[in-house]
């Protein structure tokens, strides 16, 4: 099975919507790759500037955020914009339904952690590396001097989609 994890970037805000993840003006693209430079370009985080082209974002393979991530439009472009930037996991307290489904449909992970566990991740200093243990349903985050382990539970069907490599592959062999 595919490995999930990598260097993490933090988006410390709730309710980040799909217009912020990829603005509507890029919905005219008909290839996923074309979305790559525009990920999160209109995002504003409370009290701090956000630079979508920072080194942390360039390196990130994991995004850690708060609650209701991916609300708003159904555009799967939001998931693709993450995907073509090599992000394979988003960790948050909760997700909007369509966004969460789109993630698993594409065979990539949306992991829900408790607010308390997320606080622990947000408390980590310096560069953070994340590993997701799918079988053990654990997120292991390491920074310079600390390791944090948090348990999560994955919906059984979503797990099947990850195993199948997405919904199209699953549906094609089952229906």
């Amino acid at each position: 099975m595919k490995q999930f994890g990598g260097p993490a970037a933090f988006l410390n805000r709730s309710d980040i919507n799909t217009d912020e993840i990829i603005p509507a003006k890029y919905l005219t693209e008909i290839t996923k790759k074309a979305l790559a430079p525009h990920l999160l370009e209109d995002l504003r985080l409370e009290g701090q500037e956000f630079d979508p082209h920072s080194q942390v974002m360039q390196e990130a393979q994991v995004v850690i955020t708060r609650s209701n991530f991916g609300c708003g439009s159904s555009r799967e472009h939001a998931v693709w914009a993450l995907e073509v930037n090599d992000i394979n996991v988003v960790i948050g307290e909760s997700f909007a339904r369509i966004f969460r489904q789109n993630m698993f449909n594409c065979g990539i992970l949306a992991v829900e952690l408790s607010a308390a566990d997320l606080d622990k991740l947000f408390g980590l200093k310096g560069k953070v590396m994340v590993k997701v243990d799918l079988e053990g349903e654990k997120v292991i985050a390491t920074s310079d001097d600390t390791t944090v382990e948090c348990g999560f539970s994955l919906n059984a069907f979503d797990k099947k989609l990850i195993g199948a490599g997405g919904w199209l592959a699953f549906a094609d062999s089952n229906y």
Binding site: S73, S74, E76, I98, Q101, N102, C106, L168, A171
Partner: peptide, 29 residues
């Protein structure tokens, strides 16, 4: 493939917005 598909629930239907992959599977299967 549109989040406001919920509009059609007004007719006593179950109508849900979905992403492109769900739409593809819908079209195909």
């Amino acid at each position: 493939g549109d989040s406001h598909t919920c509009t059609h629930g007004a007719f006593g239907a179950f109508a849900a917005g979905v992403g492109t992959t769900d739409l593809e599977v819908g079209i195909l299967k």
